[in-house]
């Protein structure tokens, strides 16, 4: 029961109209998951490269990477969506699908955040660890691969997962490009059924279940990566 303007209103929940469009929601969920996975994968790869530049001993690549990171940290993601989808065709005659534009916007933005996580994780490993590796005769690359990274990765998992959740929720912005993600499908169903409470509650539940499941997986991964602690 909800009190509206002094009178009690009995809202009767009715999901039947929404459930009859379940196929649309399933498609939306599929597209959201696809968009998130592709963007996370590209974002991680670019982020790793950026982190290497951030840790580079030469000034020019380091500052270039720093500028990239600062730019994406300090601008709202919806601007990036619009930029890739609406500005590029006008300015450079580059047209792309809503999916491609969304992937570009999400993966570039999150690569900046991932890069910071990678950099921080690597720097958090004590100098003595690298020294112990090189004292055995390891090259810098070997010490990084065998000694620093395995420890750093265990520390990175939690913030990386956090970032990826953030990204997954940001995929909803792709609906502004008319990409058929979960939120866009919800808007479509709503305009047909006029059942916003049911539609958006259900969509929220779907995000919740999706991310809770991912969260459980991540926790298992984290425990595996740090079984030595």
């Amino acid at each position: 029961m909800v009190r509206v303007g002094g009178t009690l209103v009995n809202y009767i929940w009715d999901f039947s109209a929404v459930f009859s469009h379940a196929d649309l929601l399933i498609l939306g969920l599929r597209n959201t998951v696809l968009l998130a996975i592709v963007s996370i994968a590209i974002g991680l790869a670019v982020g790793l490269a950026l982190a290497a530049l951030l840790l580079c001993q030469y000034r020019v690549p380091r500052y270039a990477a720093l500028a990239f990171v600062e730019f994406y940290r300090s601008t709202p993601p919806i601007v990036h969506f619009f930029w890739f989808y609406f500005a590029l065709p006008v300015l450079f005659n580059i047209e792309m699908s809503p999916f491609a534009a969304a992937v570009l916007a999400l993966s570039t933005q999150s690569s900046a955040f991932y890069a910071e996580v990678f950099r921080g994780g690597i720097l958090s490993i004590e100098r003595g660890q690298r020294e112990a590796g090189s004292a055995l005769g390891m090259t810098k690359a070997q010490a990084m691969r065998r000694v620093v990274l395995p420890q750093a990765v265990a520390r990175m998992i939690a913030p990386l997962v956090e970032r990826s959740f953030e990204l997954t929720k940001t995929t909803a912005l792709a609906s502004t490009l008319a990409f058929a993600d979960l939120l866009y499908q919800a808007m479509m169903i709503n305009s047909e059924t006029f059942r916003p409470l049911e539609v958006y509650t259900l969509v929220a539940l779907m995000y919740l279940i999706l991310l809770t499941f991912a969260s459980a997986l991540a926790r298992i991964g984290e425990r595996r990566a740090a079984r030595w602690r």
Binding site: E126, G128, Q129, E131, A132, G133, S134, A135, L136, G137, M138, T139, K140, V147, P150, Q151, A154, A226, W228, R229
Partner: peptide, 23 residues
Amino acid sequence: ERELCQVRARVGMVFQQFNLFPH
């Protein structure tokens, strides 16, 4: 770097803080 690695492999070191690999 290669020469330094070869030297370090021939000269062992034990550190004050042990520096074992925790993983």
